[in-house]
């Protein structure tokens, strides 16, 4: 494989608080190749969005990157400040947010918002930008794009607005898109359309996608590989099919067992006992050990089981026979 578009190495994000140092992202590493869609799953608070915000340099103070490296197209970007980071945003990294109803400025037409983004990053004229804006809207499936260019966000439905948001994220042709729960706020009937659109556009352009979601169904549909996060740490990383059909980490196994997937037929859903630890009360050793059915003494003491060769960061990964994974 060629060099990855995005490469995260041991990324750590910390938040200093009065109660002590919180670590919402703890030594996370993954790559995303050109044209690849990496699904990042996990419960709320698992650190998946925080990692995405760290990559695009939009962490809310006082959270900050305190360790590790972020490489984008062979350039290290985690140390970039102010103007240098701003120039990357939109141009090299696009972002799609969760709620299309609130991510567009209500007082500017969508044409204004598209052209200002393009004029910021590309050396083109106003007329050219307008032309491209119409093309961008047509590409995301807005009917009568040239007429709708001067419409305000409130004149569009939720699904249409998310299409506009995608057009905005892609309009300067970035090499990486971070999609943070792009379908969570949408009607179920629209979700599949938006996912299909995002997938098609990124495939056509060879854009790498970090698809952050808690919806295993969306991941199964869309992603090439999946990163499972738990309490700020990477639990398992591997190709989607393998992770879904033969999870190695006991947490992933529990997660799959509690997710209704059509491919698995109708079975009673399992649940993982307990809940994810708060950042203020992290257990010693492996973060999952208090809930883990396979936990041993070493899990309580060794904080950092490595993913040596395998997919799961676990001392006792689940092994599967050959036909199970097939």
């Amino acid at each position: 494989m060629s060099d990855p578009v995005l490469s995260i190495r041991d990324l750590t994000v910390e938040i200093p608080t009065r109660g002590g140092l919180l670590r919402p992202v703890d030594q996370v590493s993954y790559d995303i190749a050109k044209g690849e869609i990496l699904g990042v799953v996990g419960e709320s608070g698992a650190g998946k969005s925080m990692a995405g915000n760290a990559v695009i340099g939009l962490l809310n103070r006082p959270a900050k990157i305190t360790g590790g490296e972020i490489w984008l197209n062979g350039t290290r970007i985690d140390k970039l400040q102010g103007e240098n980071m701003r120039r990357l945003r939109g141009k090299d990294i696009g972002m799609v947010f969760q709620d299309p109803l609130t991510s567009l400025n209500p007082l500017l037409t969508i044409g204004d918002q598209l052209t200002e983004t393009m004029l910021q990053h590309l050396s083109i004229t106003q007329t050219e930008a307008r032309k491209r804006a119409i093309a961008a809207l047509e590409e995301v499936g807005i009917p009568a794009a040239s007429e709708r260019l001067d419409s305000y966000p409130h004149e569009f439905s939720g699904g249409m607005r998310q299409r506009v948001v995608i057009a905005l994220a892609l309009c300067a042709e970035p090499s990486l898109i971070i999609a943070d729960e792009p379908t969570t706020a949408l009607d179920v009937s629209v979700q599949a359309q938006i996912i299909a659109l995002l997938k098609r556009l990124c495939r056509d352009r060879g854009t790498a996608v970090m698809l952050i979601t808690h919806d295993m169904g969306v991941i199964a549909e869309t992603a090439d590989r999946v990163a499972v996060m738990y309490a700020g740490r990477l639990a398992e990383l591997g190709p989607v099919r393998e992770v879904i059909t033969a999870p190695e980490h006991p947490y992933t196994d529990g997660l799959m067992g509690s997710t209704p997937l059509a491919s698995k037929g109708l079975k009673r859903l399992r649940q993982i006992p307990g809940s994810m630890p708060r950042l203020t009360a992290m257990p010693t050793g492996c973060a999952f050990h208090p809930r883990c059915p396979k936990a041993q003494d070493i899990c309580r003491h060794d904080p950092r089981p490595r993913r040596d060769g395998g997919r799961a960061a676990c001392h006792f990964p689940i092994t599967h026979s050959a036909e199970e994974t097939a």
Partner: peptide, 26 residues
């Protein structure tokens, strides 16, 4: 604090434009 300001920043708009074009009007 609004989402559209975050989105404006995520699109790499200049601080001046974010503050005066996007935030002030609202």
């Amino acid at each position: 604090r609004a989402d559209y300001i975050r989105f404006a920043r995520a699109r790499g708009l200049r601080e001046k434009s974010v503050n005066f074009r996007h935030a002030l009007k609202n």
